[in-house]
Design a protein around this nucleic acid. Structure first.
Lengths: 122, 122
DNA sequence: ATATGTGCAAACTCTTTGCATGGAG
DNA sequence: CTCCATGCAAAGAGTTTGCACATAT
């Protein structure tokens, strides 16, 4: 069974407070605000655990480490700022995306990433 | 100035012969067919160099190492097979993709990745 | 002849794992 | 009191860099 440790609670809190997908490092520094002794290995272990559990979903955006976000969010995509390299959520999805696949290929999911400058870095 | 070494020629050949974007490792093993003494460090150095030159373009598909492809190709996207983890080119692009960005954000490029089973792994 | 390019090995970064200790139940 | 979870440090994977030697020009 799963224990409700301070570390795990701090990590979950980090995601609940975040508006964007977070890298392991971002999770570490945010969660250390509450739990300063937290180590990076624990972060990785919990990211894996919370993902297996279905609470987190991996967001594999190019360029950086893998990020994670709370799984129970509606379908959306991401914008990555080339300046500050933060990831932002983008609502919506272009229709008909799955139909681009070549004949004989089966699409089970897709990821769309926009690159550019975020409002703060513009 | 740039020297036309056997190694560099073997690396360029690997891309000219490939139909898909290649990871550094894939480049190494293909180019070693022609140049067996080729080392991975040389591959990395040349990938960087050919990219800076504009001959290659990085394709940062999630999940794996970064891949590269010849830059002078028409705009297209990619399909990644979850079984064999190869990347395939997908012609076409859904219209209006750039308009998904939030107000105040500037889009300079985008990447669309489809995931699933390729024809061979289906 | 000269300076760029290469191969090797060491350094680095990111992630995972082993092991003794700590804390939730 | 038990066992799962944590922290630390070491081990792995992928990538980059320093240095002496090779080679394209």
């Amino acid at each position: 069974m799963q224990r409700d440790t301070q570390q795990r609670r701090a990590i979950r809190r980090a995601f609940l407070d975040a508006a964007n997908p977070l890298t392991p490092d971002e999770v570490l520094s945010r969660a250390q605000g509450v739990m300063p002794s937290l180590g990076i290995a624990t972060v990785y272990r919990n990211l894996k655990l919370l993902t297996d559990e279905g609470w987190l979903a991996p967001v594999e955006l190019p360029g950086d480490s893998i990020r994670y976000e709370i799984a129970a969010r509606p379908h959306h995509h991401h914008f990555v700022c080339r300046q500050c390299s933060q990831a932002f959520d983008v609502p919506g999805c272009p229709p008909g995306v799955e139909r681009l696949a070549p004949r004989g290929f089966t699409v089970d999911s897709h990821e769309l990433v926009l690159f550019g400058r975020c409002a703060a870095c513009a």
